[in-house]
């Protein structure tokens, strides 16, 4: 068990190294001269030279790559061209809102999507099932910012139930904090809910066809324990896998949601960095989000051994 966990943790190291290499190579693979693109049209040659030095484009690829890898290992993600602050400290300033938004969305999505998926599988072939699956298609199709604007318009502007935009740190109390996060989480969660509900339904359909479910029903076990204890537990592996893989959607969507709801998090940092063409910040953010994504999926892998005792390595 411990050996398996350790081996899985070690196996993420090469993946992260490859991710770092890809992210680093983008700068060299981009067509044209990235330094002059980043500097913009009004830049003086000195500006371009300064940016080229900051990005290390004036030195050979391999030399620069090993320097940069050394920095990453020491936890240094580079320096912003625009503010001259280390990228790590910029990230630290902005991480709380994004973390809050992602966690609230994750919890909300799982709490909504799993019961919906179970319900659809239980009532398979009925109008309820079709309705839930149709909602899932809509959830996939309506982009996060569209849902965001509609929700903000309805519940904040027309009904005036919740704040329109902004973010309150959790230090100022749970209620003000969650109030600001309800609408963004629903908007961000839409596609995620659709994804999880779909996979829950199909995993549950597979499990419900098993003999032990028939046995459970035959011995007179009620519908709820059959569905949620016997079936859902055995359908957990694909569901948890999709929750982990869907984190990529969540991270990408957070960038947009934050700019719709004016949440000062990492997404806003990304958007600001794009507008200023502050590439080191973008590079640092991409790398950090990718590492988080790899780690989340590591946790998912490790959770398999708890969810399904048959999985032993």
């Amino acid at each position: 068990m411990l050996g398996y966990v350790l081996r899985r943790i070690l196996s993420t190291v090469p993946v992260m190294a490859i991710v770092a290499m890809i992210v680093f190579s983008l700068l060299y693979l981009a067509p044209g001269d990235p330094a002059s693109v980043i500097a913009g049209d009004q830049a003086t040659p000195e500006d371009v030279a300064r940016i080229r030095a900051n990005l290390g484009l004036d030195r050979p690829f391999l030399v620069r790559f090993f320097e940069w890898s050394g920095q990453i290992v020491r936890g240094d993600l580079g320096t912003s061209i625009f503010t001259n602050l280390p990228v790590t400290s910029l990230i630290k300033q902005r991480i709380e809102p994004t973390l809050s938004l992602t966690l609230v969305t994750l919890i909300l999505s799982v709490l909504v999507a799993v019961p919906l998926g179970v319900l659809a599988a239980w009532k398979v072939g009925t109008w309820l099932d079709r309705g839930i699956m149709a909602l899932a298609v809509v959830g996939f199709s309506v982009p996060v910012f569209v849902v965001g604007y509609v929700l903000a318009y309805l519940f904040a502007l027309v009904l005036d139930w919740l704040p329109v935009q902004g973010y309150t740190p959790i230090a100022q109390g749970f209620w003000p904090w969650i109030q600001n996060l309800i609408l963004p989480s629903i908007a961000l969660g839409g596609i995620y809910i659709a994804l999880i509900a779909r996979i829950t339904r199909s995993a549950m359909l597979d499990v419900l066809a098993q003999d032990y479910i028939r046995t459970a029903r035959a011995k007179g076990l009620g519908q709820t324990p059959t569905l949620f204890v016997h079936a859902l537990k055995n359908a957990a592996v694909p569901i948890v896998t999709v929750i982990g893989l869907g984190m990529a959607l969540l991270i990408g969507g957070a960038v947009v949601t934050e700019s719709v709801f004016a949440i000062p998090g990492l997404g806003r940092l990304t958007v600001d960095a794009i507008l200023r063409r502050d590439y080191p910040v973008i590079q640092g953010l991409v790398l950090m989000f990718s590492f988080v994504y790899v780690l989340v999926n590591l946790l998912v892998d490790i959770s398999y051994t708890f969810l399904d005792p048959r999985i032993k390595y």
């Binding site: 992210v23 983008l26 959607l249 960095a273 794009i274 590439y279 973008i282 989000f289 990718s290 994504y293």
Partner: peptide, 16 residues
Amino acid sequence: SIPPILLAVALMALTR
């Protein structure tokens, strides 16, 4: 392992 939108953002930041 790189969220697709962020990969696209990084590429777009480097090109016109």
